[in-house]
Computed example of a mutant assay.
Amino acid sequence: MGTNIMDIMIVDDHPLFREGLKTIISRDQHFAVCAEAGSGGEGIALARTNRPDIVLVDISMPDKSGIQMIRELKDELPQTRFVIISMHSEADYIIEAFRAGATAYIIKESAAGQLIKGLHTVAKGNIFLDGALSQEVVFKLLQTKDDADDGQNDPYSTLTPREQEVMRMLAEGLTAKGMAEQLFISPKTVENHRTNLMKKLGLKNSVELVRYAARLGLINIETWAI
């Protein structure tokens, strides 16, 4: 490829969404899709082979999260920029993505209008944050960046994206069966995630979990009768 064209790899487990991204990218002559993958593991293998300039990656995937994928690749591919495209707009996901090594965060529903702008921004070596994100999320992101050096002292930062999802649902009062249906996993897997996250956070029961989630700003404690 010509020197002015940047190679992009897409990693997302939804084929139709990948097609949509390719259509958007094809409209700009500065970028071209060189590879695509439907899972984190496949994405890692293809990234090592193709060494793309930019990787567009979802957070939630069946085998390995986009954040885990970035952590594994960032040292091997120091010239590659990682752009998260996710349905999640919560501050903790965004913070974790940037800590892992992402250079941009775009919300899926605004990808049509934000993707090209984000690609040009990271191509110049800059950070890009989706304009659709609320000021509250941005403020929390900046505040967390100032208050924590690398997040290693915060137990919440040790949770995987899936464990964070389960934690939110637990705090909101969902049953294991309800969570399993929403996350397309078994109730037994939900219970395993619950056990792991409670251990990591040092919590003993659901009441402590709800209060912990409220302190993080994940839920409104006033809506609960504890």
Rank of each mutant, 00 (worst) to 15 (best):
L216E: 12
G40W: 07
T223M: 06
G151N: 11
E76F: 11
E36P: 05
V210K: 05
D150T: 09
R81M: 08
E42F: 10
V33F: 04
S86K: 11
E208D: 04
G43E: 04
I10V: 13
S39V: 08
A111K: 03
V138I: 15
T80D: 03
S65T: 13
D146C: 12
S60K: 14
A100D: 10
N220V: 03
A91M: 15
I44N: 02
V138W: 08
L73V: 04
N153K: 15
N153I: 15
R215F: 01
E90Q: 15
M179S: 02
T49G: 05
T195R: 10
Q79L: 08
I226R: 01
M167Y: 09
A97F: 06
G125F: 00
G38S: 10
G101F: 02
R48H: 05
F31K: 04
S186C: 05
L16A: 14
P187T: 03
L183W: 01
P15V: 09
I185H: 00
E42S: 15
G178A: 06
L46C: 08
S39E: 12
L141V: 14
T121G: 06
L159T: 06
I226T: 04
R51S: 07
I44W: 04
P78G: 01
L203F: 00
A37N: 07
L203K: 03
A132H: 10
V137C: 10
D150L: 08
M198V: 00
R51Y: 03
S186E: 07
A180C: 06
N126D: 14
L170G: 01
L183A: 10
D58S: 13
P78K: 03
L218I: 00
L46N: 07
Y105E: 08
K145A: 15
I226L: 09
Y156C: 06
F128E: 01
F139S: 14
G118T: 01
R81Q: 13
T121E: 12
A100W: 09
A180G: 05
G43W: 05
